[in-house]
Amino acid sequence: MTSYIALLRAVNVGGTGKLPMGELKAMCEAAGFADVRTYIASGNVVFGSRLAEKAVKKALEQRLQDYAGKPVGVVVRTAAEMAAVLAGNPFPQAAGNRVVAIFLDAPPPPGALQEATGLNGERLALGQREIYVHYGEGMADSRLKIPAAKAGTARNMNTIAKLAGMAAGKPAG
C-alpha cells in the first residue's frame, strides 16, 4: 500500500470552499483509502491506497465535486515525494512559514520563473512538480503573480514537514 498526501486547492481559505475535515475524511474512507488523517482545516489529508496516483486523484476529485457541486482541485504526492519536496527546499535557512512550495500536477515549464510579475524581494526556484517561493518579509503585502502556478496549491514548509512526517508514520502532534 502506498502512503499518499492529497492537497486540496482553495479549501477553507479566505472564506471560500468550506469543507469540514470530518467530511473530507469520510469521503476518503468511502473511496476505500486506509488510515485516513487530516491536518489543519485547509484541505490536507494523509492516507494509504493500493491505487495509482492518477486513480487516487480522480476518485477524490469526483467525490469532492459531488459534495461541492463544482470542481475542487486536488494535488497528490506520495510520502517519498513529499519528503523530497521538504529536502529539496532551496531556502533552508529561511523560516518555515516564509517559504512555500506551490504544488503542481506536472513539472513547471522552463520559463515559469521569468513569467512571474510583481516581485518585491521574493526569491523563486523550480522543483520537480513544484515552484518554491521565499517571501522574505512575509506574504501579506506580496503582489507576486506566477502564471504557471495558477492551478497549483501552496503549503508552507512547516505544513510540508508535518505532512511528510504523518505520511512516514509519525504522529501529527
Rank of each mutant, 00 (worst) to 15 (best):
M27A: 08
E29L: 15
A30W: 00
G32R: 03
F33R: 07
A34E: 13
V36W: 05
R37H: 12
R37T: 12
T38E: 06
T38I: 01
I40Q: 00
A41W: 03
S42R: 11
S42C: 15
S42Q: 12
V45Y: 00
V46M: 03
L51Q: 04
E53Q: 11
K54G: 12
A55I: 06
A55H: 13
A59F: 12
E61W: 09
E61D: 11
E61N: 06
G69P: 02
K70W: 06
V72N: 00
G73N: 11
V74D: 12
V76S: 11
V76F: 04
R77I: 05
T78E: 02
M82N: 09
M82W: 01
V85C: 00
G88S: 14
F91L: 00
P92M: 13
Q93E: 15
A94Y: 01
G96Q: 11
V99F: 11
V99R: 15
V100W: 14
A101N: 13
P107Q: 09
P107I: 01
P108G: 04
P109S: 07
P110R: 08
G111N: 14
L113V: 04
E115Q: 15
T117Q: 04
N120T: 03
E122R: 07
R123A: 09
L124F: 12
L124M: 13
G127E: 04
R129H: 08
R129I: 04
R129C: 08
E130F: 00
I131S: 12
Y132W: 07
Y132Q: 05
V133W: 11
G136R: 07
G136A: 07
E137D: 08
E137W: 03
D141P: 00
L144R: 03
I146M: 06
P147I: 12
A148D: 05
A148L: 06
A148G: 08
A149V: 01
A151P: 00
G152C: 14
G152Q: 14
